[in-house]
């Protein structure tokens, strides 16, 4: 385990070598920080003592072969693992310094602050408008109908979907194409104005053109949001993220600036993975 650069200091050290477009100061203050996070599904351990910082207003991608625990880790960040009866999470995860597994913290509030986009586009069987308005409605973010309409419009605009759907907001969201559906789900997530957006392989069910659009969108969203994205495509990680973390068999193998990871990985397993020996 010596070769795993999992200490926060090591992460910080590598962060200073990040590409120039990364705001340096925000990297120093991580938006979210995970310390010694382990997850058990019943008797089986799926995640082992993961330490990872999520820097603010950057995109960090989690890569690794399937079953490596990257999605499990992602679901820890907004406590989606709570919905699985047999899952047990230990360790510390903080959001702006607050422990999100603290009893005093409300999971509803947490999820309002840490939104999530899923692997398969999962629009609700409602109209496009209602899909986007769902979050603001349940959280009571808009008192007047006009406010709600504005939130929906901005969210759709930010998700780059507005122009495509503005004339058919009352049609069912399930009627859109796969790529549009996924952007609708992203619009739905940002309608609550979260601080962090978690994306679980958001493009795995999409064709290349739709994927390109979503990737473009992710890049734009970085301005306002902190994004954690799970992907099995290294090209995608290289395209959209500033930092990359490599998972293998439940361990965090290596973490660092994306270009470093792809050009000069320190760990043999990362090397093997990105050169396609396994995965």
């Amino acid at each position: 385990m010596n070769d795993i650069s999992h200490s926060p200091s090591a992460a910080k050290a590598t962060a200073t070598k990040a590409p120039p477009e990364v705001p340096q100061e925000s990297a120093a203050v991580p938006k979210m920080r995970a310390e010694k996070v382990s997850v058990h599904y019943a008797d089986k351990q799926a995640l082992f003592d993961v330490d990872l910082d999520v820097p603010e207003n950057q995109v960090i991608s989690l890569i690794g072969p399937s079953g490596c625990g990257k999605s499990t880790f992602l679901r820890c960040l907004n406590r989606m693992n709570d919905t699985i009866d047999i899952a047990r999470v230990s360790g510390h995860i903080t959001l702006d310094g607050e422990n999100i597994y603290d009893k005093a913290l409300d999971v509803v509030e947490l999820r309002a602050r840490v939104g999530m986009v899923f692997q398969k586009p999962n629009p609700f069987p409602k109209s496009i408008f209602e899909n986007v308005a769902y979050g603001p409605r349940i959280h009571g973010l808009a008192s007047a109908k006009r406010d709600l309409e504005e939130i929906v419009a901005t969210s759709l605009q930010r998700a780059g979907l507005f122009n495509e759907v503005k004339d058919r907001l009352d049609e069912p969201g399930t009627g859109l194409s796969g790529g549009q559906q996924q952007r609708l789900c992203i619009a739905r997530a940002i309608a609550v104005n979260p601080e962090v957006i978690l994306m679980d392989e958001p493009c795995s069910a999409l064709d290349p053109i739709a994927t390109a659009k979503v990737e473009e969108l992710i890049d734009e969203l970085r301005e306002n949001y902190t994004i954690v994205i799970v992907t099995h495509s290294m090209q995608q990680a290289a395209r959209v993220s500033q930092r990359t973390a490599m998972f293998h068999l439940g361990y965090l193998v290596e973490e660092g600036p994306t270009d470093m990871m792809f050009t000069n990985p320190t760990d043999k397993r990362t090397q093997d993975y990105i050169t396609g020996r396994f995965g």
Binding site: V108, R111, G115, N122, P125, I138, R188
Partner: peptide, 19 residues
């Protein structure tokens, strides 16, 4: 995935069920 989508937005269980 429907359930996850709603819970992931911060809806409570009953909100997820009802809405």
């Amino acid at each position: 995935s429907m359930r996850d989508g709603s819970l992931g937005l911060g809806a409570t269980r009953s909100e997820t069920i009802k809405r």
